[in-house]
Design a protein around this nucleic acid. Structure first.
Lengths: 347, 347
DNA sequence: GGACGTGGGAGACGGATGAGCAACAAGAAC
DNA sequence: GTTCTTGTTGCTCATCCGTCTCCCACGTCC
C-alpha cells in the first residue's frame, strides 16, 4: 500500500541518486544513460517506499493530465448512459486514462452545458466525450472545440465534430428481416412520434426491407405513439384492431413492445404463436424478462463508448486526426438478439 | 468562451499589477488589502481574457484537488449505480467538486480494487466514495483509509468506515403495512435466497409486522428463490398453489414481483382484485410499466449518493469527523410508492 | 516614527527535461 | 611509452509548469 507522502525526492535520497535519475529510470526515458545497477536500485527503493508519482505535478509539467471528461445526459434515467460510461471507462483504463464525469440534463440550456464543459477544461482534461441520451441532433457548447472531442450517440448540428452513432437502419432491417425470415407477410410497425433520426431511419428501413422482399412497404400497417409502454399498448390495440391485422410486429423499442405484449394478451393473442414481436434497444430489464423473452435489436452503447474513447485517446496522442473523421459520423452495428417472441405465423 | 492559454500572469500584465494581487483579488483573500478600483480592474480584465485558474496548479499548491473519487461496482448492470452516481454528482457539483469515476466488478479481486483506489490516490482525490451494487458486507482495499472515505449501500466487514445504507426494515414494514392496511390477513412473502442483509432484514420485518398486527408472523407463507423474474414466478406458483393461498404478496424485489404477475395471470388471478402485490426497489422500467402499476418500496440510491458526498465533503473540509460516524451505518428511509397493485381482498 | 493603506518578491508544491560536467577508455600523435 | 584528443558512459544542475502565500517595501498622514 502506498504512502502518499512519499515524493520522488524521498526515493532519490534513499537511493543515493539525484531526482533527475529517479525520474529518468521510472519513466524509462529513452535518451537517459543510467547503469543497470542504478536502475535496479531505484526501482527497488521506489517499490519499497510505495512511491507513486503525483499525477498533478506530472500533469502540470507535461501538459497532459491523462484525464478524459465525459459529459453525459441524464445518467440515471436510462440504463443506456451506464453502458456508455462503462465502455468509455474500460477503454480509458486500458490505456491509462481516467474519466471525469459530469451529468447534464438533456434539456439543459446551452449556457449550463457550456459551464459543464468549462469545468472540465479548467481541470485540463486531455479530451472530452459528449454523450447524449438517445440518438439525435444536438447543439454543442462552443468551448467543446478547445480540446479534442467526440460525440457519442448523436450528431452535432452543423456537425464538424467526430461522432459515433448506432446503425438504426441496419438494426431495423435485421428486425424486420427476422420476421420475414420466419414467414410473416403481414408485418406491422409500431413507431415513435418523436422527430429523431431513429424514428425516420427505422421507418424507412422498415418500408424498404418489406418492399425488397416483394411486399408492399408503402402500404404496410403503421401506428405511431409516444415511445413508452402505454403508447405501445395503445398503438398495438389500434394496429391489431385493423381488419386483416399483422401477424408480425416490429416495435420502435422494448418499452413499446412491452405494451404490445399486454395488448396481445388482452386480445387473447399468444406470443409468438398468434403474434410475433420484435423490439429495439435490448433493455436488460425488459427484453429478457418478458414472457416469452423478447427478440430485439441491441443498441451498441458499450461499443460506442469504447469506440469514442479509443479514438479520442488516439487524437490526444496525435495518432489520429479527428477532423478527418468529422466529415461523417461513424456507424456501429446493432445486432439482433434472438429470444422467443418470433416464430412462423399460423396458416 | 475561455482561452486556456491565459494564465494569471497574463491577467497581471494586462491589468498592470502583480500576479500576487490578481491572486488576492480573484480568491478574495481575507487579509489582502487591495483598493476597490484595482479589484474592479483585475476582475474586468480577467473576465475579458476569459481567465480560469489552472486547477492542476492550484491543487498542487494548495494540496486540494476538489476531486472526489467514486469507485462503483458494475455501473452498467443495474440502474441503481446510475442513481448513486447522479446523487453524488449533483451534490458534488453544488459544492464545487467534481467526480472521478472508476468502475469495478462486484467480483473483482481485492488487489484489483486496491489498484483502482490507488489510481484515485495518485490523482490526489480529496476523498473517496465506494459504492456497491447492492446492500451487502464488503471487504475493502486497505489503502482506502488514506483519505476520507464513505461507503455507499454497504457496510465494511470489520466496519470502521462511515457507511450509508437503506432502511431495509422500515421499507419492508411499509410494504407489509400497505397490505395490512388494505385489509389483508393472509399475507405471503417471496424472498430472495442470497445471504445478504436485505434478505434477513426484510424477512424479519415481514414477520414482526404481521405479529404486531395480531397475525401469526411465524406461520405466514414464505417462499424463497433466486431474485430474478423467473425465481419470482416459480416462488409465486408455489405460494399461490398452497391451500388457503395468500391474498397479499410482498415480493423481495420488483423483478420477482414481475414474475408473480405472470404466475397470477396464468392462474387466472387478477391483480389487484384477486391478489395484491407489493415489490421492492422501484425500478423505473419495471414498476411503473407493469399493468397494473406496481406498488413498491423505493431504494434511496440517489439519496445515499448525495448523503455520502455531502458528508465526505464535510470531512474533507474539516467540518465533520467521519470516524465518529463510522460506529454505526447511517440508515436512509425507503419510502413506499403507491401505484395500483394493492386493494382490499375479496370477501 | 508608528500606523495605515497598497501592493510586490520570492519561494514552494512535485516532477520533467535540455544542457552540462566528471570520469574513464580507446585511439592518435610524438 | 607518454601525452593529447575524442567519445562514451553515468549522472546532476538549473529551470519550468501555474498558482498560492508568507513576508517585506513603499508612500503618506498624523
Amino acid at each position: 500500500m502506498s504512502n502518499k507522502n512519499i515524493g520522488i525526492k524521498d526515493v532519490a535520497v534513499a537511493a543515493g541518486v539525484s531526482v533527475t535519475t529517479v525520474s529518468h529510470v521510472l519513466n524509462e526515458v529513452s535518451y537517459a544513460r543510467v547503469s543497470p545497477e542504478t536502475r535496479d536500485k531505484v526501482r527497488t527503493i521506489a517499490g519499497q517506499l510505495g512511491y507513486g508519482p503525483n499525477r498533478l505535478a506530472q500533469a502540470l509539467r507535461t501538459q497532459r493530465t491523462g484525464m478524459l471528461g465525459l459529459v453525459s445526459e441524464d445518467i440515471a434515467t436510462t440504463p443506456h448512459a451506464g453502458r456508455i460510461i462503462l465502455g468509455a471507462e474500460e477503454a480509458a483504463k486500458a490505456r491509462g486514462y481516467n474519466l471525469m464525469i459530469i451529468n447534464t440534463s438533456g434539456s439543459a440550456s446551452l449556457e449550463s452545458r457550456q459551464a459543464d464543459v468549462e469545468a472540465l477544461l479548467e481541470r485540463r482534461v486531455d479530451g472530452i466525450l459528449y454523450a447524449t441520451m438517445y440518438h439525435r441532433n444536438v447543439e454543442l457548447p462552443a468551448n467543446l472545440g478547445s480540446v479534442p472531442s467526440v460525440l457519442v450517440d448523436s450528431v452535432a448540428i452543423g456537425g464538424n465534430i467526430t461522432a459515433v452513432v448506432p446503425d438504426e437502419e441496419g438494426g431495423a432491417r435485421a428486425a424486420v428481416g427476422a420476421l420475414l425470415e420466419a414467414g410473416h407477410t403481414r408485418v406491422g410497425f409500431i413507431n415513435n412520434t418523436d422527430d429523431v433520426p431513429a424514428t425516420r431511419q427505422r421507418l424507412q428501413a422498415f418500408r424498404s426491407t418489406l418492399t425488397e422482399a416483394g411486399l408492399d412497404g408503402g402500404a404496410a400497417p403503421i401506428e405511431s405513439d409516444v415511445s413508452e409502454v402505454q403508447g405501445g399498448y395503445e398503438a398495438a390495440r389500434r394496429i391489431l384492431g385493423r381488419e386483416d391485422p399483422p401477424t408480425g410486429l416490429f416495435c420502435y423499442n422494448d418499452r413499446m413492445a412491452m405494451g404490445a405484449y399486454r395488448a396481445a394478451a388482452e386480445l387473447g393473442l399468444t406470443i409468438p404463436a398468434d403474434l410475433s414481436v420484435v423490439g429495439f434497444d435490448d433493455q436488460g430489464l425488459i427484453a429478457a424478462n418478458l414472457h416469452p423473452g423478447l427478440t430485439t435489436v441491441a443498441l451498441p452503447h458499450y461499443e460506442m463508448g469504447a469506440w469514442a474513447t479509443e479514438h479520442l485517446i488516439d487524437a490526444v496522442e496525435g495518432k489520429t486526426d479527428l477532423t478527418l473523421m468529422a466529415l461523417h459520423p461513424t456507424i456501429l452495428s446493432c445486432p439482433l438478439v434472438r429470444r422467443d417472441s418470433v416464430t412462423a405465423p399460423r396458416l
